[in-house]
Design a protein around this nucleic acid. Structure first.
Lengths: 233, 233
DNA sequence: TAGATTGTTAATCGATTAACAATC
DNA sequence: TAGATTGTTAATCGATTAACAATC
């Protein structure tokens, strides 16, 4: 039953399963894992795990579970992590520098192949062993280095321009750290990572939780008026 | 029509509208904005904007649009950004330091109130003007400083322990940057930000786009076999 | 009044979940 | 064979979207 396109929600969870499987594979005791165990580790329910994995194929064994190594391989393959994807970072402020010197890329199927900025005091300098190039050279270097992923780490204003340059250079996958929405052609995929947005969403739930706790406290002091209306006499 | 709980998907978009409205408010030319304009800026469609905003109340004017300042205020209030929320960062490696020195918190309704680590060579040092405290002092300092948001910036292994300490200290909102799933009591909200996961999702779509492009190219060269099966003779 | 645009309805779509037959 | 666990079905739920009456 392959060839149904894998749902977006499933794709977003595959890396989480991968993370869990990697930690299982590390302590080589457990060769097999059930959907229930994997669900526990990934923080979802078992039905979801089975449904998600069924989109990849029938890689489990009834009565037994999933072979850890085999499933690991299948998810890795499905995610396209079997070769290192060359990525470029544009914008070398605090965040860009942090990303450029992040060692975890290689372990996860990525390699920083090029760095770009427009600031003359940054262009030509070395960051984490790579020379920063001028944004104007983007297209040439993307072609030379076979870059397929663009990471925007600029301030919000230039983000749109950078996205256009990336699209023009043939990049189809963009990770956008700039606090701005960028518009790209329909064949380009953009994922946005925005600290402010995450914090603001958290703030909303913080406020909601607070309100619930306050209401519960109030109803406790009044003797749960919802269920026993006689408290209001 | 208030008091329906606001859907999660809507909550996740409110900060994006906020971002757009802030940029409109800046150049004080446009006092009013239509759902269509706001949709353009936020990268969604107009129906979604109107539906989302309708959960907050009826703050628009038919035939006119939404008053920028007023809507800005209402979203800010809904997200609970009217007071600065005190946040604590746990783990002062590369990422923790980058977050601690990030100047954008204050502008966005947050304030870094405390920093924690367990490494003796880090505890006691000053990072961005705040003295790093030992994780064991978490509960006391959270109470003292009124911290309501915990930001986990540790390696994966200690992340679960830190989450438990945070929950124990009464924190109900956690932003998790560690590449690990943390389990918390049901009244605690966790949001996960994981660079590897984002990159891996991007890798999947990269691979899919590649496959589509290759297929298109092949069918172009063969004269679109799907629509004209006579190419296979 | 005519034109514009909201707020809401209802249809559609996609994701989640429980349940269970298949099968190791 | 009995017990365990997958893969899949079908019901349910939540999110998206088009359409349009309400109304500025």
């Amino acid at each position: 039953m392959r060839n149904r396109p894998i749902p977006e929600a499933t794709v977003a969870r595959l890396p989480v399963y991968l993370q869990a499987l990697l930690s299982l594979a590390e302590d080589r005791r457990q060769m097999t894992v059930s959907s229930e165990e994997l669900a526990q580790m990934a923080g979802v329910n078992a039905a979801k795990v089975r449904k998600d994995l069924s989109y990849l194929g029938s890689y489990g064994t009834r009565g037994v579970g999933y072979d850890v190594e085999y499933l690991l391989y299948q998810i890795t393959r499905e995610l396209g992590l079997t070769q290192d994807l060359p990525a470029a970072i544009i914008g070398l402020g605090n965040l860009g520098r942090a990303l450029a010197s992040f060692k975890g890329f290689a372990e996860r199927g990525f390699k920083i192949a090029a760095l770009f900025d427009v600031d003359d005091s940054v262009v030509g300098t070395d960051v984490g062993g790579i020379t920063v190039r001028h944004l104007d050279d983007l297209k040439d270097i993307v072609t030379e280095e076979g870059v397929v992923i663009g990471i925007i780490a600029t301030p919000p204003t230039p983000a749109q321009l950078v996205a256009e340059r990336l699209a023009d250079a043939g990049i189809k996958s963009i990770l956008n750290f700039a606090p701005a929405v960028v518009k790209v052609p329909p064949d380009v995929t953009v994922r946005k990572v925005d600290l402010s947005i995450e914090l603001q969403i958290l703030s909303f739930y913080q406020q909601r939780n607070q309100a619930i706790a306050t209401a519960r406290e109030a109803s406790r002091r009044l003797g749960t008026p919802d269920s026993s209306p006689q408290t209001r006499r």
